[in-house]
Design a protein around this nucleic acid. Structure first.
Lengths: 341, 341
DNA sequence: ATAAATTCTGTAAACGTTTACAGAATGGAG
DNA sequence: CTCCATTCTGTAAACGTTTACAGAATTTAT
């Protein structure tokens, strides 16, 4: 179905394009009768505004981009949905880019999106330096999620990762566990670092000595989770533990496999608390007790912050906002109370 | 970093915009020296082409939209990645829309995307009638995936769903199972219908009588899977079975829960074959044997078909293509050989 | 009735590109 | 030196909107 243009409509009705445009956009100073005639003609001639032309003129595309490392992770999917819901009423739409966790793709997309003149960006980066994205700070508002680059004055929406660890570890302590191993993604990233801090703080608070050998580091991947767990199990004689806390989803899966591979059972032999385990994985037996992030709230907060920034676009400089959200526990069957708890 | 325009560059160099534009786009008939001067200036003045203006002039946005019912499903995520990889070299980029499985959202997005003048669309619809999308057939090429609406002459890329069922059922038969229950999503949708046909055909081929009570219908959701499985288990005395084949991912999870809820074990008490179970779920014990779709191949095929359609855009009418791909089995530990197999 | 204020409409420019067309410069052949 | 072909460059229009400005029509005030 070919569409017609403002000019077409104007000619049909013997009006100028200006008047037609005004009628379409509900501007004032259009005679009611004229407006009706135009509205009628729009339907009749199947007019659909050309957003491209409009964007060019208005210098705004009404488009927000979201760059994520892996679109397949439900974590990001839910956040994206949350954002979408929040900004849709203002006629903004979303364009999603998947970087496959590669910095060079981040660059490629940033350039491309700037060329496309997006109005704003939501960025889950894997480049903690923030070297490249800096260049775009003055081009459009940017809100960071998940991992936050080490830069001054950036807008971001994240959960309190330290608190997340505190909740997980306390959950275990309350159920009688005192020897608690932990598997952590790289502490070079903000998330991993904070998660370790939370673990250490909590042990200190409950006056439980820290055994460094019970802290294993990986890289967020399943394999790493498997290897970390193997290491823990091998040294179990000398460094015993009754529970393990794994601080990210994929590593949790790896750890579970390693436990099963040794013929051990969860939670009978080892209790386990995971991180960010999504619904569908929880359906499987034994269901995992996990710390979770409120993805849809994150999405909503991001959306709200975006709208705020978009509205103040012209009006001078603002100070950046760091929005910290609360994680929560989701109880499964992977933790067994011990010592009579 | 504010950018400059072709006009800016032209003025700096005392050239016309035409010449600058030609130099930028590597057109012929530009003196080598001039071209170099321009290229130099582009860097110096930080020029970035405005895609919006270019799109308006060229009547092409170099953008392909993908509409999916749920962006959180890894199935779609992988397909999207596959498409992206395939069309990126031609400078096409992707815009993703999530309909939440609602027809009204499909309409909303179709309208919006047309306004944005996308060049092509990939559509995983939930509206089998295809009533609304029809309107856009003449506006841009459309390739359907997953569920295909009941319309003549549409381009689509899907797996052979009947064959998928044949593979699953044969897998069970080869391992000694003859009483095989099946849980199916609605047969009103193309996928579900074909999957049932494959099941029935295979039983016939092996001369196994069909027990209609062993065929349960749901709606693709986890709850339905749970209920179907409960029904099967309740009537097990009169309608015994040793294995169950569940034809979609979420229902598989529900079915597993129902089995566990009865205190039964997989595969010791009941063997199970799932459908489309994604990697991360497979990590959990017991891992599920499942039929899978080659998502990245689907993505690639879609991408290739898109490019083909985009290239022939002007050159007259084409006949539609239905690309059928092969499913494959992924072996887990959820099937136990019986009767000495 | 006239002036002033208000409402309505049209003209034309602008957004940043690409490109048909024409004209200028260059080089070579005769 | 002239002519032609070729290479290079510039002018201006076009893509489809929105909008400043001005002018026309209508209403209100005097």
């Amino acid at each position: 179905m070919g569409t017609s243009t403002v000019k077409d409509i104007a000619e049909k009705l013997n009006l100028s394009v200006a008047t037609v445009s005004r009628a379409i956009n509900n501007k004032e100073y259009v005679k009611e009768e004229t407006r009706q005639r135009v509205l009628q003609a729009l339907k009749e001639y199947n007019y659909v505004p050309n957003e491209i032309a409009r964007s060019l003129k208005l210098q705004s595309t009404k488009t927000v981009a979201v760059i994520v490392p892996d679109i397949c992770e439900a974590f990001f999917g839910k956040i994206i949905k949350g954002i979408e819901r929040t900004i849709a009423y203002r006629e903004y739409s979303i364009i999603v880019a998947d970087t496959d966790e590669k910095k060079e793709n981040e660059k490629r997309y940033l350039d491309m999106l700037f060329q496309k003149r997006i109005d704003a960006l939501v960025f889950a980066t894997v480049d903690l330096s923030g070297d490249y994205v800096k260049n775009y700070f003055s081009s459009f508002p940017i809100v960071f999620i998940d991992n936050i680059p080490e830069l001054e004055d950036v807008d971001c929406v994240v959960i309190d990762n330290a608190k997340a660890s505190r909740m997980a570890v306390e959950y275990l302590i309350e159920r009688g566990h005192r020897e608690i191993a932990v598997i952590i993604g790289s502490v070079k990233e903000t998330t991993g670092y904070a998660r370790r801090e939370g673990y250490l703080d909590t042990l200190k608070q409950y006056e439980i000595p820290v055994d460094p050998d019970l802290i294993q580091y990986g890289n967020y991947k399943e394999d790493a989770g498997y290897r970390c767990m193997e290491t823990l199990l091998k040294q179990r004689k000398e460094h015993p533990f009754t529970a393990v806390y794994v601080t990210c989803e994929m590593m949790t899966f790896g750890a579970i496999k390693a436990i099963h591979a040794r013929g051990l059972r969860i939670p009978e032999d080892i209790s386990l608390v995971g991180f960010d385990i999504q619904d569908r994985a929880k359906l499987i037996f034994p269901s995992i007790t996990t710390v979770r992030q409120p993805e849809s709230v994150i999405g909503r907060k991001v959306g709200e912050l975006l709208l705020k920034r978009l509205d103040e676009k012209d009006s001078g400089k603002h100070t950046s906002e760091k929005i910290l959200l609360e994680p929560y526990m989701e109880e499964g069957e992977s933790v067994k109370p011990i010592n009579g708890r």
